[in-house]
Amino acid sequence: MNLRCQSCGAELVVEAELRTTVCPYCAAPSVVERPPSVDSPAPTFALGFSLTHQAAGERVRAWARSRHPWTHSGLKRAPLEIIRGVYVPAWLYSARAESEYTASIGEDYKETETYTTTENGKTVTKTRTVTKTEWRSLAGAHAEYVPDVLVTASRGLPNVELAAIEPFDLRALARYAPALVAGWVSEEPSLSREACLTLAREEAQALVARRLAAFMPGDSHRELRFRTRLEAESLDVCLVPVWVLAVRYAPQAPPLRVVVNGQTGVVHGKPPVSWVKVALTVLAVLALGVGAYFFLGGRS
């Protein structure tokens, strides 16, 4: 898509997956307002960045230093090659959940029982207090509102990665305005609305399952079964702030991608494993085991 810079008049080409650009001649930021569609509507809300570029780098360095002992040693001293702040499109979903459920509810009670044991070669009778559970069937209905389920609308940031850096502080949501994202990389939705709606419903159902389990009375429960209807569904596009970094931990390996919540600083990445460290650890454990065997065998 072509766009005329409002500052110097240069004709710019904006990639289809982006909604922002910066003029290479005068550095003026521009925002593309494309016609909305079913799968790519105009954003309704946006969350601003609270974490600076420098702070994001510091969070990633601290994260790298705290990884498990089998992480590739190059990660701790790796340079951060690229740090970009991206407004990632996500769908914000809410619904009313109506559930019907059945379960077995356990009520604990204590009972004193008599038992025999052997002490000093003699059989003696003793008593002890044991906990037993009485099970009863329960059926009922449960209704609740499921707000603020966030799922990715970007092919570039899978939902599992977005979920790993949640939650975002949605109290800071603002109505979208082009000025909020000017000068930043801002991505257009690249996943279909239906695919995202399916993801959101799955997350909402999982949330209802956890809440129903917590709602059950008694001391314990089992065989919880339920059927949930999601009604009065709401789905809006929201732009969320994410720092995306490339970490070069080894010359021969591709950079490791790390993402950081642009509000809270939560970091997510898949630390590379050093198989040399793993092998050395296994050999050390085997050596200790063999040494202990011969030591104990020699004393017997």
Results as ranks from 00 to 15, higher is better:
A174F: 01
E203D: 13
E100D: 07
G297E: 03
A292R: 09
R19K: 09
E11L: 14
T102Y: 03
C196W: 08
A103G: 12
P35Y: 01
A279D: 03
C238M: 10
N2T: 14
P167D: 01
E231S: 15
E203F: 10
E223G: 08
A209T: 11
T198I: 13
E144K: 02
Q54K: 14
R229D: 09
E144T: 13
P189K: 03
P241V: 02
A90E: 08
E202D: 14
T125N: 01
Y176F: 15
L157I: 15
V259W: 01
C5D: 00
P89M: 03
T52F: 06
F215I: 02
S192Y: 05
L235W: 08
V266D: 12
I165H: 01
L224C: 03
R193Q: 08
N120I: 00
E134I: 07
K122F: 07
A90V: 14
V146I: 15
S192A: 05
S300E: 06
L288P: 02
T123F: 01
P251N: 09
P158E: 00
A284C: 02
G289M: 09
A253S: 14
G265K: 05
P69Y: 11
T264C: 04
G269D: 08
T44Q: 14
W275T: 07
D236F: 06
P217A: 13
L235D: 12
P167H: 02
A179F: 01
V149F: 00
E81Y: 03
E81G: 06
C8P: 11
P89Q: 02
F215C: 00
L150S: 04
R96V: 11
V149T: 06
L170G: 03
R227Y: 13
T102K: 10
S30Y: 05
P167R: 00
R19Q: 14
K277Y: 04
P36M: 02
R65D: 15
S274T: 10
G57N: 10
P147R: 13
T123N: 02
V247T: 12
T20M: 07
Y101K: 08
R155M: 07
R193E: 09
A10Q: 09
P29Q: 05
F49N: 02
A78N: 10
A195R: 15
V31I: 01
V86F: 12
R19A: 08
A62P: 04
A103D: 09
T112E: 13
S137L: 06
V285E: 07
E15I: 02
V160D: 11
I83Q: 12
S300W: 13
A253V: 09
V282K: 05
E134T: 10
R227C: 11
R84K: 10
T102H: 07
S66M: 06
E161R: 13
L92K: 05
T44V: 14
L80D: 06
L180V: 14
E161P: 04
L191V: 12
C196S: 15
P158K: 01
E233R: 00
K126A: 03
F168M: 06
R77I: 13
